[in-house]
């Protein structure tokens, strides 16, 4: 089981925002939206685009982040691929907030494909 890594104080991550953080040599996008924190692999499963440079879509029933390259959207909660051209989920990671710090724990399970 991986450990929780601190990625910075909560004040570094205003709501809404998404930014690249490094967790154990992995690029992770940390998202703060509608009061929740989320962490996903910062990689679009379609062609590797950086999700942290993409737009957040938080008004929808399923809040997502969109890849800036071709617009593939991934659910913030579980990384599921919501729209084409992505067909595979990106990895979601565990986030917790403690004592004003945000922590991320990497998850390795690769499940959860589209449909």
């Amino acid at each position: 089981m991986n450990d929780f890594h601190s990625v910075g104080p909560t004040t570094d991550f205003p709501d809404p925002s998404s930014q690249l953080v490094e967790v154990d040599e992995i690029a992770v996008v940390l998202i703060h939206a509608a009061g929740h924190f989320y962490a996903l692999d910062d990689v679009c499963t379609h062609d590797g685009g950086p999700l942290s440079d993409g737009d957040l879509c938080v008004e929808e029933a399923t809040p997502t982040i969109a890849c800036p390259r071709h617009g593939a959207q991934f659910a913030l909660a579980d990384g599921a691929a919501v729209t084409m051209p992505a067909t595979k989920a990106t990895q979601a990671h565990e986030v917790k907030v403690e004592g004003g710090q945000v922590y991320v724990r990497l998850c390795d399970s690769h499940a959860n494909t589209r449909k």
Binding site: A66, H70, G71, A72, T83, M84, P85
Partner: peptide
């Protein structure tokens, strides 16, 4: 627009 979303290219 679901198979080819406008964001595609």
């Amino acid at each position: 627009g679901k198979i080819i979303p406008p964001e595609d290219n």
